[in-house]
C-alpha cells in the first residue's frame, strides 16, 4: 500500500514536471534582473565577481540572515548532543605516526588555501562560505589524523562572535554615513580587479569565512562527541 501510494505520488509529480518543462527552453534565460546586475554590478559595488556583488552587495541583508541560520543550527546541534553524551563512542585506537605527521604538515597549507579563497572572494570564484568550508575540512583532517587535537572552545567562541559582530557593526556604520543605509557600501570602491577594492565586501567576506569555518568545525566537533 505504502509502496503503491509513493509510486503514484512520484508518477504524478514526474508527469507534471514533463508537462511544464516542455515549454521552457534550455539556455534561453532572459531575466531582466540578472542582466541588470551583470551590466551595473561592477560599477555599483566594485567587485569583479558578480556573484559576490549579488551575495554581499545587493542581497547583503539576506546573507546576514543566512549566517544567522547557520549559527543557530550549530548552536542547536551542540545543545542537542551535549545531553546525550552518555552513549559516547568507544575508545579509538591511536593513529600511526605517518598519518599524524602528514596531517600536521598538510593542515597549515589547507588553512592558507582557505584564507586565499575568502580573501580573493570579490575577484575570483570563491568567497567566505567556500573558504570557511575548506578551513573546516582542514580541521577534519587534523581530527582524523591526530586524535588528541581539539579546537579550543574559547578561541572558537571569540572568532565566531568577532565575525558576527564585524558583519553587524559594518552594516550599522553604513547607517551613520550620509546617503547610505544598512549594509550599504560606504567605503571607497577603488579600481575593480585590485585586491583592495569593493569597499566593505572583502572585510565582510573575511569575517564570514572565519565564522563559517569555526561554525562548521564546531558542527563536526559536536557530532564526533566526547572521545576519551
Amino acid at each position: 500500500m505504502r509502496v503503491l501510494l509513493s509510486l503514484a505520488v512520484v508518477a504524478v509529480l514526474a508527469a507534471g514536471i514533463v508537462t511544464v518543462l516542455r515549454d521552457v527552453p534550455f539556455g534561453g534565460n532572459s531575466s531582466r534582473l540578472g542582466s541588470h546586475f551583470v551590466e551595473n554590478g561592477r560599477e555599483d559595488t566594485g567587485a569583479a565577481n558578480i556573484v559576490t556583488s549579488v551575495v554581499l552587495g545587493y542581497r547583503g541583508f539576506d546573507t546576514l540572515g543566512e549566517v544567522t541560520v547557520l549559527f543557530v543550527a550549530a548552536v542547536g546541534l551542540g545543545a542537542l548532543l551535549v545531553a546525550g553524551e552518555k552513549n559516547a563512542p568507544r575508545k579509538l585506537e591511536k593513529a600511526s605516526m605517518v598519518l599524524t605527521t602528514g596531517s600536521r604538515f598538510l593542515f597549515p597549507l589547507i588553512l592558507l588555501f582557505g584564507a586565499y579563497i575568502f580573501i580573493h572572494g570579490h575577484l575570483t570564484p570563491g568567497g567566505g562560505f567556500q573558504g570557511g568550508a575548506i578551513i573546516a575540512s582542514g580541521y577534519l583532517l587534523v581530527y582524523l589524523g591526530s586524535r588528541d587535537r581539539r579546537l579550543g572552545k574559547n578561541w572558537a567562541a571569540s572568532i565566531e562572535t568577532g565575525g558576527g559582530l564585524t558583519f553587524v557593526l559594518l552594516g550599522l556604520a553604513g547607517l551613520t554615513a550620509a546617503g547610505h543605509w544598512f549594509l550599504s557600501n560606504f567605503l571607497p570602491l577603488g579600481v575593480p580587479g585590485q585586491l583592495l577594492s569593493a569597499g566593505i565586501i572583502p572585510i565582510i567576506y573575511v569575517a564570514i569565512g572565519l565564522k563559517v569555518g569555526v561554525e562548521l568545525t564546531g558542527v563536526i566537533d559536536s557530532l564526533m562527541g566526547g572521545t576519551e
Binding site: 534582473l33 556573484v51 542537542l80
Partner: peptide, 25 residues
C-alpha cells in the same frame, strides 16, 4: 549567465548542510 540563481544556490548549499547536520544530531 544569470548571477542571481548562483547567489541563491550558494546560500542554499550552506543552509542545507546546516539543516542536515541538525537532522543527523
Amino acid at each position: 549567465v544569470d548571477p542571481v540563481p548562483q547567489a541563491l544556490v550558494l546560500t542554499a548549499i550552506v543552509i542545507g548542510v546546516a539543516v542536515l547536520a541538525m537532522a543527523l544530531g
